[in-house]
């Protein structure tokens, strides 16, 4: 490179720097004297001028397929004690203000959980093979869940695949139950090269058993293999 060219280049650079100089304040950190320290309390209002808002609780339109899956899942999985609110639930607050040395405020609150009566009205907790199966729409849903499970598995995301398979299995799919079992199976995990996932032969056997009950022959042979193996 000739000396002449490099002089021109330096002049160019100087001109370029000068051109961008008005933006210096945008890119230079504020001087330490100007820097202030702000302490926020959790109750403080959010800082103004922030363009992104938090995710609204209801604002994001739900994936309709996900909504269907969730609804189907909700039919199958019922948490014990998650009955309709207010039934047999009483809160009593009693304050007593007398003590020998100090004044103590005692708040007693107790709630009576729904008793055996309420539990009897609720559907049985989820045990996939014995579930009452939803009719036609769940066939599509099972297929969808299986496909997404297979895709997750192909991506190496075994935990996601497991969740998808377990949902499909909860809707009565034998194949999904077998696949769910495989995600716990030590042999399958070793073959798929998964790392960081702990095999669980008991869970695998449980899923294979469910799949066998639902009529999947592959599960029967997998189950026989697990049960035939001496326990460590």
């Amino acid at each position: 490179m000739s000396a002449k060219l490099s002089i021109t280049a330096e002049q160019d650079d100087a001109a370029f720097r000068a051109r961008l100089a008005p933006l210096a304040s945008e890119v230079l950190p504020p001087s330490s004297a100007a820097a202030t320290r702000t302490v926020f309390r959790p109750s403080a209002p959010p800082a103004p001028g922030v363009p992104a808002q938090g995710i609204p609780a209801q604002g994001i339109p739900d994936d309709s397929r996900l909504a269907v899956a969730r609804a189907a899942y909700a039919q199958t999985a019922v948490w014990p004690g998650f009955g309709p609110p207010g039934i047999g639930r009483r809160v009593l607050a009693v304050s007593a203000a007398v003590a020998s040395a100090a004044v103590l405020g005692l708040v007693w609150s107790f709630s009576r959980r729904p008793g055996s009566n309420a539990l009897a009205n609720a559907p049985a907790p989820a045990t996939p093979p014995s579930l009452p199966l939803a009719a036609a729409p769940s066939e599509n849903m099972i297929g969808l869940l299986l496909r997404r499970g297979d895709a997750a598995l192909a991506d190496g995301d075994i935990i996601a695949a497991r969740l998808l398979y377990e949902r499909a299995a909860a809707m009565g799919s034998a194949k999904a139950a077998t696949s769910a079992g495989k995600t716990y199976d030590v042999d399958f995990l070793a073959r798929s090269g998964a790392r960081g996932i702990r095999p669980d032969q008991t869970a695998a056997a449980a899923w294979f058993r469910k799949a066998a009950v639902l009529g999947d022959p592959e599960a029967r042979s997998l189950l026989a293999r697990i049960e035939g193996r001496p326990r460590p």
């Binding site: 370029f16 720097r17 051109r19 961008l20 933006l23 210096a24 945008e26 890119v27 230079l28 950190p29 992104a52 938090g54």
Partner: peptide
């Protein structure tokens, strides 16, 4: 960070790519 080099690089570039993760 916002800095002088970023300004110069942007001024000379044909394309500025701004990677960002899906977070606020």
């Amino acid at each position: 960070t916002a800095n002088q080099a970023m300004l110069y690089a942007a001024g000379k570039s044909d394309l500025v790519l701004v990677p960002a993760q899906p977070s606020r």
